[in-house]
Write a protein that binds this DNA or RNA. Structure first.
Length: 196
DNA sequence: GCAATGATTTACT
DNA sequence: GTAAATCATTGCC
């Protein structure tokens, strides 16, 4: 069952980030369903420097983050990798959760086909750029409603607090002290969590 | 209009 | 472990 907009439109992006662990991200791209269990997330908010919309800055790229929670924010990083985020909070507040790693569930054959024969199974979705390529996510999905039939998130298993690990976010050293915020959530011991 | 750079991955040494 | 690949977005001229 798809998560409804009340889940996304809460005002604490860090709490939503933690709640997304164990949920299932599903894409329906090119006639194929692919899905995976979310095992790693990071929270981003306009209030801190790690976020593209820091200081509530509107640009063409960040505009989707200001929309009401429950949309996809997809953008290109390092010229070659798509990163997938979930927009949260109410209209006008630019918060989002980056999905960093999944445990493959459905459509594993299709994921392998998208990645090429050489890819190792355990490299399919163990990183933010890898999971978007395996699930067929690209910028054409930017701004899509997660209630539509191309990409959405379903209810999954509940992760007990004892299995949730918190740490600082990765790859945002330029954000100064905001890079130290404990806003990265992973499932403890899960082999699909990306390596730092 | 142009140059700098990044929420990463992969292939090599 | 280190470096190259590669381009949309951004900020400044």
């Amino acid at each position: 069952m798809k998560l409804d907009r009340d889940f996304y439109q809460r005002d604490d992006v860090v709490e939503i980030s933690r709640d997304l662990l164990g949920k299932v991200l599903v894409t329906h791209v090119g006639g194929v369903i692919t899905s995976g269990i979310i095992v790693e997330t990071e929270a981003y908010s306009w209030k801190e420097r790690g976020c593209h919309a820091y200081g509530a800055k509107h640009t063409p790229r960040t505009s989707v983050m200001f929309k009401p929670g429950g949309r996809a924010y997809v953008y290109l990083c390092y010229g070659m990798h798509h990163l997938f985020n979930v927009v949260t909070n109410r209209e006008g507040v630019a918060d989002a959760v980056l999905i960093r790693a999944l445990e493959p569930l459905e459509g594993i054959d299709a994921m392998m086909a998208r990645r090429g024969d050489k890819v190792k199974f355990h490299h399919l979705t163990s990183g933010p750029g890898k999971l978007t390529r395996s699930l067929g996510i690209d910028r054409s999905l930017n701004g899509k409603l997660l209630s539509d039939n191309e990409i959405w998130i379903e209810e999954g298993k509940r992760i007990p607090a004892s299995q949730v690990e918190v740490s600082k976010r990765i790859g945002i050293d330029y954000a100064g002290e905001d890079a130290l915020l404990p806003w990265r959530f992973t499932i403890k011991g899960n082999p699909w969590v990306s390596k730092a």
